[in-house]
Design a protein around this nucleic acid. Structure first.
Ligand SMILES: [Mn+2]
Ligand SMILES: [Mn+2]
Ligand SMILES: [Zn+2]
Ligand SMILES: [Zn+2]
Lengths: 138, 138
DNA sequence: CAATAAATTGGAACCATTATAAAAAAATAT
DNA sequence: ATATTTTTTTATAATGGTTCCAATTTATTG
């Protein structure tokens, strides 16, 4: 029996955004999307893909993360200067960031809501609103 | 007649946090705190201090910004990977970030309020909540 | 003023990321 | 299938913001 969830298969997900299903991109797509929502850095993903025995250069990791972001498969989250996080959940949502562990995690559902959104400065339009709740280990 | 606002003078502000009033630090404190709230990067501040004719190395700019942050005179705001912004307003408040110009600016008063704050993950405590409203030029 | 401690400095090192250009792989045409 | 063309991957170099370092200068203390 066949799942009807869209893009169950890595190859279809790549096809849907017009990227060729290469060995490297397939491995990355599987790691990223076949285990629920994820938040990864380039180095993390490189370590993971290497661990499962697939050889992918770090340059390709960066290329792929940027391409996936450009086509809307991923979004980038800025939590600390120095390194980028990529998020497989592209819907509007907010984050907890653990300063001790560097772990980024979604804030569930609507458990944080802005009561008022402020008026954007003159001649500007609001693009997005990012809420980051910074936490520390107790 | 004497102002009664605390730390009107750069030298007092440095004294109050136990930092020696060197020529370099005095110039930086004046630029940072004598013209209302500011949001600057290291490079920006270096350009400014150079423009007023004070010679300060970039290393000292970084040292000073980090020291000022450590003693609570400044706070660091993470808006984009790659470079740090330092904020002279250390009270809890939120920001507009203009992606086109790189300008960071305070969201006035309580024009943005979180209706609910989410429960922090197990064994963690909330440290701070940062709201960044990203805008673009119209 | 002498001695000591702290701060500043130029330049090297660092680290995440991006650029480059050659080799490899994939798609297309024959 | 083979040849041709296009895209992708890769190793490596370059980049840019930041930090480190050891030598020099400045400030404080005795
Ligand atoms: Mn990017
Ligand atoms: Mn810092
Ligand atoms: Zn997320
Ligand atoms: Zn601010």
């Amino acid at each position: 029996m066949k799942k009807d969830r869209p893009f169950t298969h890595a190859i279809d997900r790549l096809g849907s955004v017009g990227l060729r299903p290469t060995r490297q991109r397939l491995a990355l797509v599987r790691l990223l999307f076949e285990n629920g929502d994820r938040h990864v850095t380039a180095e993390q993903l490189h370590r993971e893909v290497t661990e499962i025995g697939v050889k992918v250069s770090l340059a390709t990791i960066y290329n792929s993360l940027n391409q996936f972001t450009a086509v809307g498969l991923l979004r980038e989250v800025a939590v600390e200067t120095g390194r980028s996080y990529f998020d497989t959940n592209t819907a509007a949502h907010h984050h907890f960031f653990n300063d001790d562990t560097g772990e980024l995690q979604d804030i569930p559902g609507d458990s944080v809501v802005l009561s008022t959104l402020p008026i954007a400065p003159d001649d500007t339009v609001v693009e997005s609103v990012d809420v980051i709740v910074r936490v520390r280990n107790k």
